[in-house]
Design a protein around this nucleic acid. Structure first.
Lengths: 109, 109
DNA sequence: ATTCTATACCTAGCGCCGCTATGTGTCAAC
DNA sequence: GTTGACACATAGCGGCGCTAGGTATAGAAT
């Protein structure tokens, strides 16, 4: 069942999904990949090559902030958390998504 | 209120929306632009420079078929209709959209 | 007559962004 | 000591919306 979702949909959902996940609390790249896979029931299976640039971009836009930390296991991880701007951006993204979703559902009947 | 929706969302929704509109019956470019604007309550305001390439692409993918006709007013219009493949593609797009929508709503709580 | 508006189609060039492929390094298990 | 999971990163490619422009007709307004 893991039929991949179209590239455009991945592009459209990556920003709101990452922001929404970080709104639930700090996380890091590798964990976000797993969270997305679990939350979607395997329907969304992002690649690392797609996610890391997204995180860097969101950081450059000041929507998220990063800090390096080392886990008990001794692994280096880059933890991200939502900024104030990020919270506002999340609401905006959500509003946009719902507008498009409502339109699609209106046509689907 | 016509705050524009992000470029990525436009990209993600253009294919399913056009297919869904044509599933309701034949239409043409200029009319589709208006239908999208009305169906979205003005939230979606596509440009011609975005829609026509979409139509050409969908036609190249054999998801829609075109025919030229002249209206009573004497205007040349290119009418598009959904192909069998287009119907299938629409269902696939819809399934994808709903998978992402469900994921987003799961995170939004 | 002429100008304006709405209608109706089209495309070139730009920039953004996911994807593929690849690279680096650590830790735990076998 | 090799494999697999973990964890981060980037270069090059292709796809696609956007901007900005172009062409053309019909009807209304001036």
């Amino acid at each position: 069942m893991p039929e991949p979702v179209s590239k455009e949909l991945v592009a459209a959902s990556s920003k709101p999904l990452v922001l929404a996940i970080l709104a639930r609390g700090e996380s890091y790249g590798y964990a976000i990949l797993q969270e997305v896979r679990e939350l979607s029931g395997g329907r969304l299976d992002w690649t690392e090559g797609m996610l890391y640039p997204v995180l860097h971009r969101l950081e450059a836009q000041k929507l998220i902030q990063a800090r390096w930390a080392t886990s008990e296991g001794g692994r280096r991880r880059k933890y991200y958390r939502l900024s104030h701007q990020g919270s506002r951006a999340l609401e905006s993204e959500r509003s946009d998504w719902e507008a498009v979703d409502a339109t699609l559902k209106a046509v689907w009947g």
